[in-house]
Design a protein around this nucleic acid. Sequence first.
DNA 1: CTTCGCTGCGAACACTGTACGCAGACGCGG
DNA 2: CCGCGTCTGCGTACAGTGTTCGCAGCGAAG
Lengths: 238, 238
Amino acid sequence: MAAKTNPIPSVWARQQAEPDQPALSRAAIVREAIVMLDAEGVEALSMRKLGTRLNTAATSLYRHVATKDELMELAMDEIFGEMAVPDASGTGWRVAATEASRSFRATALRHPWLASVVGQAGLAYLGPNLMSFTERLAALFTAAGFPEPSRAIDTLISYVIGMSTTEAAWLTTVARSGQTEAEFIARLMPAAQQAAADYGHITQIGPPVDLDPAEIREGKFEYGLEVVLDGLEARIPR
Amino acid sequence: MAAKTNPIPSVWARQQAEPDQPALSRAAIVREAIVMLDAEGVEALSMRKLGTRLNTAATSLYRHVATKDELMELAMDEIFGEMAVPDASGTGWRVAATEASRSFRATALRHPWLASVVGQAGLAYLGPNLMSFTERLAALFTAAGFPEPSRAIDTLISYVIGMSTTEAAWLTTVARSGQTEAEFIARLMPAAQQAAADYGHITQIGPPVDLDPAEIREGKFEYGLEVVLDGLEARIPR
DNA sequence: CTTCGCTGCGAACACTGTACGCAGACGCGG
DNA sequence: CCGCGTCTGCGTACAGTGTTCGCAGCGAAG
């Protein structure tokens, strides 16, 4: 791009570094990366595209971010910052845990690419927001009287992670197909029933199809959430 | 590689197509891909490397596999074939479900790359082995008397998937660091405790460190499994 | 014997993440 | 005011990636 620098380097022609683009910083890079990930998915993000989106060259990003994997970890931690763990005072631990789980799921569905990153990088990265999230959960479960709060937490968020990432991956697959969720299901039904018949087992698998798929998924999540919380509640010594 | 074809194409010099290499087939490709994935992880697998491993060119693979993503889905389904769902007769549904969950976890830890694939492709792909797995689970939970077996199944495998993939991703991270698991934990402890102190919450997070990390992980899994199964058992109408 | 479809493959294309070295800007001691 | 060292942006380049295309051989079918 030779046209970017003014051919005659005159001080008069040069405008004042247009401050609408707030310079290049790690925070700005992560923010724009999340925008791209939300809009086009995990495989559409490349350092070059991110660079042009920020009006810089791709290699400039490496001044603020060591590697692309590190950028993904930063983005992941940023997303963890969107998850809320409400206070248990007044409402009790169970509604607080329910609300935190719902917040996790909603956030994961808002940023479906998170499923890939969690599957690849895991939760070993100790970002501040992830730390804060688990720390608040630990306070919640300790106050609830669990003798082994870390195990209770791991049980709950394992369920939530499993359900949410599966759901997110499903939604990405549906979105890639260009069809609506109902259409996609309708197209998949014959193959599924065929396979079910092959195993000689007449299963009415899944709920009736005339409901809103999004509501079905939400109901499924809530069902499992109650199951897990029931099992956990029995662990609290009286 | 001009030296591969005999410079003088004589029938006598040509040996009988050495049958130790069992030709190129979709099954052989998937099998070798799994070997590579197990050995070197998901990011070390490329079509070219896989090709040379099979003594062919990379582009030859595309005669049997449409795309690399399809190959990954095939590999994933192949792995699902390793998971066992035992029969419930005699032992009851609960031990059968426990055994199936343990089988899932063991298989996922044997092939840690599966976590990435599940996170990216999800369970929307209807491979025969995945179908068989869920079908046998459906039979198990239906016979157990669950009014909504599909919901019970989704609850259980969501927990199992969440725990197993998180564990697999953790193990991959540890392996990449070149340290043992205990060393890795010891190195991470100060940062974690520092962060915990920042939030003013003195948590004895995690168990004492003088135990075998693998046993700790297994105990964690078993704890959550019992919790989920307890919650599920209460859903069976008497 | 001819023909046709299938399989392997070399070359090429459009990208990717990232290392390296150069150029300019900014703050600071003289 | 000058020089200077550090920091930031960036053009170039490299080693790879998934995948397409057209060509060559080979086995079976007509």
